[in-house]
Write a protein that binds this DNA or RNA. Structure first.
Length: 850
RNA sequence: GCGGGCAUGGCGGAAUGGUAGACGCAAGGGACUUAAACUCCCUCGAACUUAGUUCGUGCGGGUUCGACUCCCGCUGCCCGCACCA
């Protein structure tokens, strides 16, 4: 018998599929279509196990749907713009373009041997001028439609390198290269009006039934709809133009507990004071230190400064409140001003305690009372007793209190109930080279003018250098020069490029018509929506929310049909592939990471092979190049073949959960495939058996078809594989006739083929199957084969299993009861008495309560 | 800090509120072999008075005839936090 040799046969089948055009998608109107898409990769140059897992999941879906008769679209491309290409150019010379396209070629060479059923004719990279030119065309349409505008926004500014930093380039508040303390600086930037669609993006989540509940919940919280009161505080001694400070609160019921008014360091009033008060300017400078992330702002020490300005309490003109600047108030949310109710908000409480501001309780618990060591902030749904309420009942829920307060304030004419969202507009400007140029020009006479579509694509210039920090487009000698599309005068190009999230917000629709001279075409109507989208949970909010917005914006500008406003019908979020990290501390105090092969694992810990020093082991960490804990799938493929790698990433762990890479697992997968190969060859060699066992084998096989089909449909691939292990055991042990074994093996090959397609083809051919197994229709379950005549019923006594009986499937309840009460263990437990209760769940279980 | 998720043998995991540990890995024992590898067979949650009994699904409560599963409160870890992709 020939040994299973994946190295040869895998290549053979891949060429055969390729020649037959097996995976070319065609918009066949006679067939139902199915569009399966995995999140496209960033071309880092090396594939990793996370890729193998992601694409294997999608491949199983694509191949199964094909077998079920769908016209399948399963494309792949490259998310090719972004910072790493520029970083590489800075670190080792070269050009981001060359680096990127070379990486794409390298990764393709690594991915092709895995045998994924992609239609490579639709491949593109987002850095292809053909792709980003169409993106520029849509930008112009969206600008025209009022979906894009400019405003000031803060960025991380490195004062030494004189450049904008990404959040990940800010480490502990310092620039990653210069080490300088990062400042928050305002720049004029381009924005998508995503907040205008906040309500729709929120409400539509309810209809996304194919999405995980957790993702919908995360997006809902991110959008953050709130009902509250917007009202003004009348100021007493503020600079001109600030006679009123507008405030937004979601807890107007606590207005009588106001201890102070707080404004953001970026509030216009704070800026006005900054100009005239050096102390205030110094304080604001301190507030602006550090990065721009919400995390950095929320975890920073709470800082405040009294402005000296006083306001009148709207419910009592004699009551004056101080106005403070506080570093934890965000200008982007609400109006950038709040009133502090220190008794019922933990953050305000800490602030008031620190700066000795009043803490005035508004309500208290129905029973007992809270001490003053913390704010009392129960859920709004909880009923409380108001002691300083001004609207509604004395005892009511927070919700009712808020509603009554809004109504009362509207009555008194000093505020309005409003709905607000936490979601901010999407800033798309990047002060970087390697991105899609924003197609607008700045004209001295006409102002900001969109480029003419005839001039698209606006290409990135190739002659740039990265030896100095900053945006090479800014300092390019000629690229900026252009003529105004409106008046023809000399003008300057915009040098900001687009956020790479824009690129990934519509690539799914470009796959439907890659290469077309408009962003989308009629074929887009056939293929959209994506029926199954698969990718990492880390994209739960930003990428997926931006894509949902962009599909709406494309629809509003005529680039997608109304039915594609929600682009992804179903979403599956896979877990990460993890591996232990081995870490020591270097002489400079920084962490040093070691490759697994450089570490000795012993009973008393882990040690470096080189010098024997103790290594810290961090288990189950995300695989990341910088942590040296990446397992290269190419080694597995070379040693065991693609099917083994595919089988391994599908086995054991459920796909939504993180999976820890282990070398032993890959070996086990390889052994299993070799075993199935041997069983198939045994059958092919024709040893006959006993036809009496045929029925049992076919029954087991149909049960496997049923369970595996259901498991694949519910993304429980680990369970499908467990069933295939059982089926292999059954096939190995059965004494059935050769004809029956051949039939069962053929069906098993079909069931395995979506996961391990190469060995699937091999066995299919060996069993005399027609054509490719990849083209064979999915096996159909014979329901008659699933029927069991006798069922085993466990008997519980007080909820603990104590015995079991076998009964015919349809035995009436009364007879089961009789049998149970005559059972030895039950008689012993009853000790002559009667059961309190006898619960019979037909076909399931019996519980005797004594 | 805020939002979301996860937690079951030595390990990965299985279990419409109904026999906890399917299936696999590792380990141990045996067969085959001159020997080894491969392969095949058996055992495998813990404790005890071992044909049995008791305990056992991160911790503490609760609902139920019955809870890994539902509810409340914790702990630990993971993801995201708007310029990483």
């Amino acid at each position: 018998m020939a040994r299973y040799a994946p190295g040869e046969t895998e290549k053979k089948w891949q060429s055969a599929w390729n020649e037959a055009g097996t995976f070319l998608a065609s918009a066949d109107p006679a067939k139902e279509k199915y569009y399966v898409l995995e999140m496209f990769p960033y071309p880092s140059g090396r594939i990793h196990m996370g890729h193998v897992r992601n694409y294997t999941l999608g491949d199983v879906v694509a191949r199964t749907k094909k077998a079920r008769g769908f016209s399948v679209l399963h494309p792949i491309g490259w998310d090719a713009f972004g910072m790493p290409a520029e970083n590489a150019a800075m670190a080792s010379g070269g050009h981001p373009k060359d680096w990127t396209y070379k990486n794409i070629e390298d990764m393709k060479r690594q991915l092709k041997p895995l045998g994924f059923s992609w239609d490579w004719t639709r491949e593109f990279a987002t850095c292809d001028p053909d792709y980003y030119g169409q993106q520029q065309a849509m930008f112009i349409d969206m600008l025209d439609k009022g979906l894009i505008y400019r405003k000031n926004a803060v960025v991380n500014w490195d004062p030494v390198d004189m450049t904008v930093l990404a959040n990940e380039q800010v480490i502990d508040g310092k620039g990653w290269r210069s080490g300088a303390a990062v400042e928050r600086k305002e720049l004029t930037q381009w924005f998508f009006k995503i907040s205008e669609m906040a309500g729709d993006l929120l409400d539509s989540l309810d209809d996304l039934e194919g999405w995980p509940e957790k993702v919908r919940l995360m997006q809902a919280n991110w959008i953050g709809k709130s009902q509250g009161l917007e009202f003004g505080f009348e100021t007493l001694n503020a600079p001109k133009g600030f006679e009123r400070i507008d405030c937004y609160t979601t807890r107007p019921d606590t207005l009588m507990g106001a201890g102070f008014v707080g404004i953001s360091p970026d509030h216009p009033l704070a800026k006005a004071l900054e100009a005239q008060d050096p102390d205030m300017a110094a304080f604001l400078a301190q507030c602006r230190k550090g990065g721009t992330t919400e995390e950095a702002i929320e975890t920073a020490e709470k800082l405040g400064r009294d402005t000296g300005i006083r306001v009148k309490h709207p419910l009592n003109p004699d009551w004056e409140l101080p106005v403070w600047v506080a570093n934890f108030i965000l200008m982007d949310y609400g109006t950038g001003a709040i009133f502090g109710c220190s008794a019922h908000d933990q953050r305000d409480f800490e602030f008031a305690t620190k700066y000795d501001l009043p803490i005035i309780p508004v309500f208290e618990p129905i029973e007992g009372s809270e001490g003053l060591s913390a704010a009392y902030s129960p859920l709004k749904s909880e009923t409380v007793r108001y002691i300083r309420g001004f609207a509604g009942a004395q005892v009511q829920t927070g919700e009712d209190g808020v509603a009554a307060a809004i109504a009362a304030c509207e009555d008194k004419g000093f505020g309005t109930g409003v709905t607000k969202f936490r979601l901010r507009d999407w800033g798309l400007s990047r002060q970087r080279y390697w991105g899609c140029p924003i197609p607008v020009v700045h004209c001295a006479d006409c102002g900001v003018v969109p480029e003419s579509k005839d001039n698209l694509p606006i290409r990135l210039p190739d002659d740039v250098s990265f030896d100095v920090p900053g945006n090479p487009l800014d300092r390019h000698p000629t690229w900026r020069n252009c003529s105004c599309p409106k008046c023809g005068a000399q003008a300057l190009r915009e040098t900001d490029t687009m956020d790479t999230f824009v690129d990934s917000s519509w690539y799914y629709s470009r796959f439907t018509c890659a290469g077309a001279d408009t962003p989308t075409t009629d074929e887009t109507r056939y293929w959209m929506n994506v029926d199954q989208y698969i990718g990492g949970i880390e994209h739960a909010i930003l990428h997926l929310l931006y894509s949902r917005f962009f599909a709406r914006a494309m629809n509003d500008t005529g680039h997608l049909p109304d039915t594609a406003r929600e682009p992804f019908n179903a979403l599956f979020t896979q877990g990460m592939v993890t591996h232990a990290i081995y870490k020591t501390t270097g002489t400079d105090g920084r962490a040093v990471y070691h490759y697994p092969e450089d570490v000795d694992q012993r009973e008393d810990g882990a040690f470096l092979k080189s010098d024997g020093s103790k290594v810290d082991v961090i288990p189950s960490a995300k695989m990341s190049k910088s942590k040296n804990n990446v397992v290269d799938p190419m080694n597995i493929i070379q040693e065991f073949g693609a099917d083994t790698a595919r089988w391994f990433v599908l086995s054991d762990s459920p796909p939504e959960r993180d999976v820890e890479w282990t070398a032993a697992g890959a070996e086990a997968a390889s052994k299993f495939l070799a075993r199935v190969w041997r069983i198939a060859n045994d059958i092919a060699e024709g040893a006959d058996g006993d036809a009496k066992a045929d029925q049992d084998l076919l029954k087991a096989t149909h049960k496997a078809i049923d369970e595996i089909t259901k498991s694949i449909d519910s993304f429980a691939f680990n369970k499908a594989l467990a069933k295939l292990y059982e089926q292999a055991n059954t096939l190995q042990k059965t004494k059935a006739s050769n004809a029956a074994r051949r039939e069962a093996m053929k069906l098993t090959a079909q069931l395995m083929a979506p996961m391990v397609p190469h060995i699937g083809e091999d066995i299919w051919a060996l069993m005399g199957g027609d054509g490719f197994v990849v083209d064979a229709p999915w096996p159909v379950v014979d329901p008659a084969m699933l029927v069991e005549d006798v069922v085993t019923l466990p008997i519980q006594i007080n909820g603990k299993r104590r015995a079991e009986i076998s009964v015919p499937k349809d035995m009436p309840k009364e007879e089961i009861e009789k049998l149970v009460l005559a059972q030895d263990n039950v008689l012993r437990a009853l000790d002559g008495g009667q059961p309190k209760k006898l619960i019979v769940v037909p076909g399931r279980i019996v519980n005797v309560v004594i």
